[in-house]
Design a protein around this nucleic acid. Structure first.
Lengths: 233, 233
DNA sequence: CGATAACTTGAATACTCTCAAACGAAGTGG
DNA sequence: CCACTTCGTTTGAGAGTATTCAAGTTATCG
């Protein structure tokens, strides 16, 4: 059992079916593998938009506004595809939450290379639409929800992405700090900590150490998230 | 000079080059033209994700959370392409800001029909990435910015999209109400009103009636937006 | 011109932030 | 293996910004 290759895994995950040799060669030429150490910023080409495949590890995409304020725009885990804009109203950086391996493509070149590979294009389109929809759901949280609802939303969403079963209970091993969570939810670390405390007191969660969260009552927690429902209100 | 056809204009705007007859016929069969009256919700097919081309007028995409709270996720104007999800964490609706004409496609079918039309696919991809990047910039505003900064951001962004020159000054004819602006920026109408008042008092803007805003000092206004800059801080 | 809806303004409240300090976990070196 | 250092987290008190509630005012439309 030899170590899997980042590029190979990317092809299997993102290009369904059997891609032509020509396409494979083309893409191999475009992609650059990068290691991102925990807490460090990926050294991406900042001259053009990048499309990054997370092969192993976890990252956060951070936007910087004036005054050093940071907003975590999204978290990513192995298998995810991230679009990193070169220039926008705010400055964006992809940062490792742990030691991470990624494969970075210039967005324009990737799309250009895919004109003959509709399956690759549709896959990228599919994923970027999904990202858009997630970003909108996040915007609703940031714009209209209380701290409690944001934290409950966050934990519920994380559960679906990286939750595991541990002795009959739902467990979450968070790779991000309280600060990261705060920067993602538009709250301060103190507020995050207080909300965790109250959820703990309410018996909805249990925490061990810094990163482990057991979800004792997933249904009640999701109920705190303030998502749309036809029944309530 | 006969009235332009929505479908024709869609093809010209979204499918560059000269599309094949087969593709044209296929797309024509998929698209449904809809009229959306001012203040009313578009009667879209809610069973699957939709891709909507705004032919004429303006719309807002509204997400509904629990408790009747609403978040305007994006505004759209003639020529824009909107992705409306069928089901997500929140309930989404496309609403007319004025009498509006749109062309709605089932997203999956549109993408399916485009497997042979890479230019259509790349155009849709391009636009959805742009939407993603705008949504992220919006998330930064909602998560990390003051009321003042959000309003300044909003006015600056609107200027670039629908600003006009009027006797040597930059004019904005806002099709949306204070409530819409508030729901877009995660603020209340009262806060919007107060911010407009203060910007007026500072001499940055001038308002006439409900919808006309003259930007007297675009540079200073943009400076209030709190966007990233290397120079400040 | 009158009615209605949208907007503006004011005062009191609430939620989260800021600042400050104590606590605990994780890692290092003896 | 333990003491020590450091960083992340927790907790508390006070301050600030936007919200809520309540009038009052101004556009816009019929």
């Amino acid at each position: 059992m030899h170590e899997p290759n980042p590029f190979q895994q990317f092809m299997e995950a993102v290009v369904p079916g059997s891609p032509s040799r020509a396409l494979t060669a083309r893409l191999r030429g475009l992609g650059r593998t990068l290691s991102i150490e925990k807490g460090r910023i990926a050294k991406l080409d900042r001259d053009c938009d990048q499309i990054v495949y997370v092969f192993e590890g976890a990252t956060k995409l951070v936007a910087q506004a004036s005054g050093g304020r940071e907003q975590v725009v999204a978290f990513h885990f192995a298998g995810d595809l991230v679009s990193v804009p070169a220039r926008a109203l705010h400055s964006y950086a992809l940062t490792g939450l742990m030691n991470t391996q990624v494969l970075a493509f210039p967005a324009a070149s990737l799309v250009g290379a895919a004109v003959d590979a509709p399956l690759l294009l549709t896959e990228v389109l599919e994923r970027s639409m999904a990202a858009l929809h997630r970003c909108r759901d996040k915007a609703v949280g940031l714009g209209r929800k209380s701290a409690r609802e944001r934290v409950a939303s966050f934990l519920t969403a994380m559960c679906e992405r990286i939750g595991t079963r541990h002795r009959d209970r739902l467990r979450l091993d968070l790779p991000m700090s309280r600060r990261d969570i705060g920067d993602s939810l538009g709250l301060t670390i103190e507020t995050i900590s207080r909300q965790f405390g109250e959820l703990r007191a309410s018996g909805l969660i249990e925490t061990t150490g810094r990163s482990t969260v057991d979800i004792l009552d997933p249904v009640a927690l999701a109920g705190c998230a303030g998502h749309f429902s036809d029944t309530v209100d």
